[in-house]
Design a binder for these strands. Structure first.
Lengths: 208, 208
DNA sequence: TGTACATCAGTGAACGCGCGTTCACTGATGTAC
DNA sequence: TGTACATCAGTGAACGCGCGTTCACTGATGTAC
């Protein structure tokens, strides 16, 4: 009965995926509590309610687990933003930029992971490929948003610039001395708004 | 002879400073070889030609040493840029921005330290104060450059935006997949130029 | 000038810790006949 | 239906390593009388 066998096999495979997912979710929860560079396999295991060695049944090493968490998180951001775009809640660059900033302030650990992987640069081939694909899909979303306002040959450059500017804002002012979190957020939003505005008006001057 | 005593004392103090400096310089040299987060006290000691325990005669702990290295490095950047400004080699925002980018590409370890300290945020009081002062002096240089073109109340916001944008460019594209270092540099310079241009034209439109 | 004492830079060896990862094993479930 | 075997998720304990930091000590130099 080859047919049943494959059904069984896929069921098993699904279970395996589900268990992987449990581990990744646990990791994500721990990331919420402390800087992710300080999160150990033991803590993830404790949070997931399993033994440390069990994690290694599902991930070859720590880096793979963390990259997987990052990739899933990225996918989720992109989906959420896409939903808002589809719902017509994002009509211009400023809206988009605010959502990007707010999301990454809210999911701070995700931003930390992003900058960490951007800085790192000593990842093995397959993991690097996964990360690059995640980066590509973020940039594509920027492209899509900007494409409306610009000539095609201007799109990419401007989306790169905006992407970089937003990341820079998030990193440069996150520990703005003597400011409360709410003030920091407002400052970041203001700077992001300025960046979006500059980008838009520059595109207009170039395109039209 | 209290006078001679103080001379002696200051001489001793100077020697102490000089020895501190030897250690910091050694650290800086090691930073050139590998990501600074991976640099250990043992390596710094080896590079300086002394015992590990000797370092602790001059710095209470690793963080203090690293912060000192960062602060000195920052001071050097600022001085160099100031010199170029004084020599009339920087006449507009685009010039300035290129120098900033190039310097930090060249001194990659310094940029890494900067982002690391920006992300970290769990430093003890006095160290934090040192870092904040360094950050402040960088931002003041941005202010000075921008102040020429803008109304005073616009200066700070724009220098923050530009500072953030440049940092973001440096972090977001440093590992641009499949590009050679020279191509990465050109891309960064292009983006930085775009940022400077946007900033200038926006200032002009606001200032009138 | 000589002697006893204080200071302090410098040191090698050790401490203690936490980490990522591996290993040998258990026990439950599924399979073959 | 019962029995022998294979598979594999899950585990606790251990391995090995590198790290920041401390400690007890040495030896050179300066100081007091």
């Amino acid at each position: 009965m080859p047919k049943q066998r494959t059904t069984f096999a896929t069921l098993k495979e699904d279970e395996r995926k589900a268990r992987q997912r449990v581990i990744v979710d646990a990791a994500e929860r721990v990331f919420g509590k402390k800087p992710f560079e300080q999160v150990s396999m033991r803590e993830v295991a404790r949070e997931a309610g399993i033994a440390v060695s069990s994690i290694y049944r599902y991930f070859p090493d720590q880096q793979s687990l963390f990259v997987e968490a990052f990739v899933l998180g990225t996918r989720e951001i992109i989906n959420r933003v896409d939903q808002r775009i589809a719902a017509g809640r994002i009509s211009n660059l400023s809206d988009f930029v605010l959502i990007y900033i707010d999301f990454l302030i809210e999911h701070d650990h995700h931003f930390r992971m992003m900058t960490h992987f951007m800085l790192d640069g000593q990842l093995s081939g397959p993991l690097l490929e996964k990360l690059n694909e995640a980066a590509r899909s973020i940039l594509e979303q920027f492209d899509k948003i900007i494409a409306g306002d610009s000539k095609p040959e201007q799109t990419r450059l401007h989306s790169h610039a905006l992407f970089a500017a937003l990341n820079g804002i998030l990193i440069s002012f996150r520990n703005y001395p003597g400011r409360k979190p709410e003030e920091v957020r407002r400052h970041m939003e203001k700077l992001a708004g300025l960046a979006a505005h500059m980008c838009e008006s520059h595109l207009r001057s170039v395109t039209g």
